[in-house]
Design a protein around this nucleic acid. Structure first.
Length: 582
DNA sequence: GCCGTTTTCGGCCCGACTGTTTTCAGTCG
């Protein structure tokens, strides 16, 4: 699939052209880069079957870019990019990641000091060669050094699951204040992106000074970057930055819409406003344009997000869907999905116990599941083959089975409407067989099959291996299907579309694993699976009772993947669920 | 370079802040 390669190339082109001072073309290249990144058909395939004309059907691809794609497919290179690189032999993408550096400054640094990459930049800054440059100064030099340090320390992004607990604590402390009337987290956290750069929190305060003082003195705060009556910026001890923004009540909705993003979604909504003769900014929706002499702009919406969307002729779009990836089109043609809600979830079927690598007993897991208001919980410890892992062998599974039967009998006697289901997480071996015998698997309520070894297998072999496993009639759920670990390990090499097809034929359910390290399937793949007509299940893969709470992250991805209640099977009652597995 | 319910030319989101200037360009979100 050349789509991602080409996407990267066009982003690079945009960066170089911006440094060259070219107007508007960077915008066009970025647009097509985003478009290609999300395009599901392989560009190479499109070109082979439909040629240049076919390429131009992709949004953002016109004559010029279609030719560039053709050139890349044929030669593996794009001449104009090679020329740009020759002219400016810079590591543009890495330099642009430094806070306070943009294309113009990068160009000056290269021309005057020969700075080509982060290493050169660090040397130049430490030697104080940057501050004397025209347009630069002491402060800029310091900012560059700080930016470099931040990049080194954090690589710029944090896992959603790592920052969420702290964000919630801060949100709650703000919510408890009397002078604060509204509180909401915005930004990529609100959109449930799997990694986060920094945090934006919006409030409406009747006493901004008091709120600011309170915020910067929170125990979580390590360092104060700025304190004012509209914005406070701090670095938390946990390592990431939080901006608190204080906005007027009448602008809270538009500010929330603006700060939630994504940038691309905002650009689209603002364009729609313009088409209707309106102006949308973080202050509200306005009609009348002072510059054309028709008097003062009049605010017609802004207090709530609902009003803002309504004023520009749209309806409310869930934050997780605001990626400018068809959501506005969906609003306009009335096909916006009704997203699954957390309270639709009736149980969690991926739970480990002390029997394999978990920390808590079945009883403890069950108790926590009951506390969450679930109607059932599924115990799914690892299985084992030849005693290699710490999984359960045949005898141990049967023993566990008996224990679960007893528990269910006890609940029935107590008139408790709660069911413990017995499943397992079987390993998909290198040849696609499972590490547990079919006679055992048959006895269980359900079986999750997952890959835990041989993850670097070559694409064809891996595809065949997985297909063999999901064709096993005892397999109900394909666990953490792509195997990626965010920021650490890529997805398995596999023909995922083919696997989705086979899963559809065999009624295999795909897991949405809620572990913040995995989020697998992620939003993008959830949408892909949904398009294939597949059913999914949101599980936590809990290894202790606290982890049952991770469900919210799976829900977040489900929202990003436009999943509805009907797409997710652990919204079913236990009777319907078991029927489904059968 | 792309695009069109103000269409085949003339636009391309919007506002604030920062650090550098002495009125503003560059950067950010």
């Amino acid at each position: 699939m050349k789509n991602q390669e080409l996407s990267k190339i066009f982003f690079e082109m945009a960066d170089y052209l911006e440094i060259e001072g070219v107007d508007f073309k960077p915008y066009a290249y970025r647009k097509v880069a985003l478009s290609l990144d999300n395009w599901k058909e392989d560009v190479g395939e499109i070109y082979r079957s439909k040629g240049i004309k076919g390429l131009q059907e992709i949004p953002g691809v016109g004559e010029g870019i279609a030719k560039a794609i053709e050139e890349y497919l044929k030669s593996g290179k794009i001449k104009s990019l090679e020329e740009l690189k020759k002219k400016l032999p810079l590591k543009v993408d890495e330099l642009l990641r430094v806070e306070s550096l943009g294309p113009k400054k990068i160009k000056v640094l290269y021309r005057e000091l020969g700075v080509k990459d982060l290493k050169d930049l660090g040397k130049a800054a430490k030697a104080h060669k940057i501050s004397p440059l025209f347009g630069f100064g002491e402060k800029t030099e310091q900012n560059i050094l700080q930016g470099l340090e931040f990049l080194k320390r954090s690589k710029g992004r944090f896992l959603l699951g790592d920052i969420m607990p702290t964000v919630k604590i801060i949100e709650e402390s703000l919510r408890a204040r009397k002078e604060i009337k509204e509180v909401s987290v915005a930004g990529s956290v609100r959109r449930q992106k799997e990694t986060i750069g920094d945090i934006d929190i919006l409030v409406v305060s009747e006493n901004p000074k008091k709120t600011a003082d309170f915020f910067v003195s929170l125990p979580e705060v390590e360092k104060i970057w700025a304190e004012g009556s509209t914005k406070c910026s701090v670095r938390l001890k946990a390592g990431f930055d939080v901006d608190l923004r204080m906005v007027k009540r009448e602008s809270f909705g538009s500010a929330l819409q603006y700060f939630t993003g994504s940038k691309e979604h905002n650009i689209s909504t603002r364009k729609i406003a313009i088409e209707k003769g309106l102006k949308l900014s973080e202050y509200g929706v306005f009609e009348g344009n002072p510059s054309t002499g028709s008097g003062r702009a009049r605010q017609i919406a802004g207090a709530t997000e609902e009003d803002v969307y309504k004023a520009i002729g749209l309806s409310f779009v869930a934050p997780e869907m605001r990626e400018d990836d068809g959501e506005i089109q969906a609003v306009l043609n009335g096909s916006l999905p009704v997203l699954i809600k957390q309270k639709d979830i009736k149980g969690d079927l991926h739970c480990h116990t002390v029997a394999s690598d978990g920390k808590d007993s079945i009883e403890e897991m069950v108790r926590s599941a009951m506390d969450l208001g679930y109607e059932y919980v599924g115990i799914s410890d690892h299985t084992k083959f030849l005693g290699v892992t710490n999984g359960l062998d045949e005898k141990e599974i049967l023993k566990q089975h008996k224990k679960i039967e007893e528990l269910n009998a006890k609940f029935k006697k107590q008139n408790l409407k709660f069911r413990v289901l017995h499943g397992c997480e079987a390993d998909i071996m290198l040849d696609g067989s499972l590490n547990a015998k079919d006679e055992i698997l048959e006895k269980l309520d359900y079986v999750i099959a997952s890959v835990h070894s041989g993850m670097k297998m070559e694409k064809k072999k891996m595809t065949a291996r997985i297909i063999k496993a999901i064709k096993n009639r005892n397999v109900d759920i394909f666990g953490h299907p792509t195997g990626r670990l965010i920021g650490k390990r890529d997805e398995y090499q596999m023909d995922f579309d083919k696997i989705l097809e086979v899963a559809k034929e065999n009624g295999t359910i795909l897991e949405i694993n809620s572990s913040p390290l995995r989020l697998d399937l992620n939003g993008f793949n959830i949408r892909r699976a949904k398009t294939h007509g597949l059913k999914m299940i949101i599980n936590t893969d809990s290894h202790n009772k606290e982890q049952l709470n991770l469900m919210e992250y799976g829900i977040g991805q489900a929202h990003r993947g436009w999943a509805e209640k009907a797409d997710i099977i652990n919204t079913l009652s236990v009777e319907k669920l078991l029927e489904f597995f059968k």
